[in-house]
Nucleic acid binder design. Sequence first.
DNA 1: TTAGCCCTATCTACCACAATATAGA
DNA 2: CATCTATATTGTGGTAGATAGGGCT
Length: 412
Amino acid sequence: MGYLCDFCGEQRSMVYCRSDAACLCLSCDRNVHSANALSKRHSRTLVCERCESQPAIVRCTEERVSLCHNCDLNGHGVSTCSSTHKRQTINCYSGCPSAVELSSIWSSIVQFPFADDTTCEEELGLMSITENSLTTCSCGGSESNTNHGSGLVETETENANVLVGSSSSLPELKSPTQNVSLQTATPVDALPSKICCPQAKEPLLFEDDGLYEDFDMDEVDLNLENYEELFGVTLNSSEDLLENGGIDSLFTKKEISREDSNCQDAVLAEGSSAQPANPQPACSAASADSMISSKTEPVLCFTPRQAHSNLSFSGLTGESTAYDHQDCGVSSMHLMGEPPWCHPGSENSQPSVSRSNAVMRYKEKKKNRKFEKRVRYASRKARADVRRRVKGRFVKAGDAYDYDPLSQTRSC
DNA sequence: TTAGCCCTATCTACCACAATATAGA
DNA sequence: CATCTATATTGTGGTAGATAGGGCT
């Protein structure tokens, strides 16, 4: 029995969500990620069956075990006899796939207990392509259309072919030609425009849809038309950066605040910029490490404008592996090759939708981020917890203090 | 409609120092 | 290449002050 689901704490965790940095059971995965259109975009994968705390990236067909990068290295290092084991790349998915879909994706890997479940059947169109998919770059033009058209796409990895979920995460952002051949999903017209198209005022669509019960419209109580005025062009990568839970996990309180405000500025700056969204993988421009700011570092957060200028970060190049992308934590949206708002065909046709989504995602991440603080060094926290202070400031050992966390007393 | 004031909420800098990272011998 | 030493940098929490925004007159 592995670790328990971070959400319910009852079921065994099977899925790792990078954005939430959480291990979830299948049930909670669907519940959590069907809450709204934003959570649907979270990139998930299987949990490493060895350490049971990291996202699995490969499946060892010999040992029949899913492994994260570290466990893969440990188990299949060049010096070990297991190094010749055949391994399959485990792909990520987003959206709200049904058990049937998951079974299709990982048919050779796991058995899913909800084979007859159809709760999210209508969301099949939201299935997202994988991070290392070689054939599904929607920005690439017509060649990708066929892949997007099918519910599934076959990607060829080094050692094996794996079926992975496909199509863009947001159906309404597909170009019309991409939608025409959807096979597994509901007809294009029936796809939930409600998800990402707030302008399409169809409240009735929400009534019977429990997926949206928890959607906090107070937080996103936007006058979208005003936001359209604010954001003159489609947003690019700043929101994708915010999307990433791994980055969040590395930020301290101060950093979170700065990153928050900076990225808000970035959003607005982008909105006022006349530059078109750059479909190039801006994700490669920033790794989680590069996003860590310091008091002395002038550049705290990279902006989309910087991304446009081909600024290079962290040595992530076009030769980066899928793992590099995974590890850097940058949103899989770009990595998957289909940033919904950078699609050449969608940029003009759905600009307000893209902007609305960007705003909503920003607000959601901001909202979530404020309630979280990660302590990177427990030892330092332990020290700070017992240090005496004067007006909140640390004082030298032996000096007079007005606050002692241990005794709650004052020396003066 | 605008300006000014008040109140509340949020953000930021500050402090000491052990832990950690880096450079050089 | 490994080890040691010296120096530089980082991160931690509570508080005061600054700032932003809303409501009211």
